[in-house]
Design a protein around this nucleic acid. Structure first.
Lengths: 158, 158
DNA sequence: CAATAATCGTTAAGGCCTTGACGACCAACC
DNA sequence: GGTTGGTCGTCAAGGCCTTAACGATTATTG
């Protein structure tokens, strides 16, 4: 526990009425997420010329070959308005294309260009290398346990 | 494992050369963080009239009573430029004050106003309630184990 | 001591996120 | 078959984040 966490715990304890164990877990999750995402963005995504948001969209579309903006939003957990903006950026960079649906003209179908696929694979190779380092000090068993717990927390949010 | 995760794993497996266990853990951490932070912002922070970034700054300053912007940035894991912007917003809302340091005129000292303190405590009460729900299905032992693992991952990032 | 170097906070530019409002479009009902 | 009500994607406003460049101020050093 570093000085900040320690001091925060003391302050909350003085104040009274707080659950300190839950504070610790939430605080650490919050902090780990911030640090991890920042690290990923500055050392993997930006060097490949895309943002973390752009990577998330590219990856999601790559997995399904073709998706509608609404589905990208649902799968990646952001609003459709956010996806709309990111798609504009990715389209400008030539990494994706948006096609019209001939049956329902409200719909768009998003797919990766060959360059988009290349960028995605190159970027995820790097990210996966970083992931290996990040979890390197955990045994296979510990890693599986962590995965199970994360999945369980995620389920309880829905 | 939901359909998206399953399909992503299959695609990566076809492609070859990826560590799938690390993918799963990273993918879930990424997703949990997005969902959890989004949930916190929309059901706790915004209803109290502040942003997640504002909450983070208020909390950090509250723990230390008084801090310089640079220290807030380091403790909360964002750039000093980001802190500068958030402080402007919080100051406009009357939740913090920035004082000059008389010895070194480059420095600012940030403190909470009485209203800032009230907002912070009210907001964290709500957040702590949500944290209790969020971790409710874990036993004390499991929660402690999770905390230990999060702390360990965080250490390996520094 | 003056000139140079380092440090602090802010601003600028480019992107992203949220909610709310909106046009375009489809479906369903009277 | 028109009107009425949903649905899809986009835009607008307000905030936040990053890096880079800047003024202001303090520290160092020849």
């Amino acid at each position: 526990m570093d000085r900040f966490e320690e001091r925060a715990t003391d302050r909350l304890d003085e104040e009274g009425g707080f659950e300190l164990d839950e504070f610790a877990a939430s605080f650490l999750l919050f902090r780990l997420a911030t640090q991890y995402l920042g690290h990923l963005e500055s050392s993997v995504h930006r060097p490949e010329g895309i943002s973390t948001a752009g990577f998330r969209v590219l990856f999601t579309v790559w997995v399904y070959d073709e998706l509608e903006p609404r589905q990208i939003a649902r799968l990646s957990g952001v609003s459709t308005a956010a996806v709309s903006g990111v798609l504009t950026t990715l389209e400008g960079a030539g990494l994706i294309i948006k096609e019209m649906d001939s049956n329902d003209r409200r719909l768009r179908r998003v797919r990766l260009t060959p360059e988009g696929t290349a960028v995605l694979l190159r970027t995820y190779r790097r990210q996966n290398d970083l992931e290996k380092d990040f979890f390197a000090h955990l045994s296979r068993t510990e890693l599986a346990g962590l995965t199970t717990q994360l999945r369980s927390l995620l389920d309880s949010l829905e």
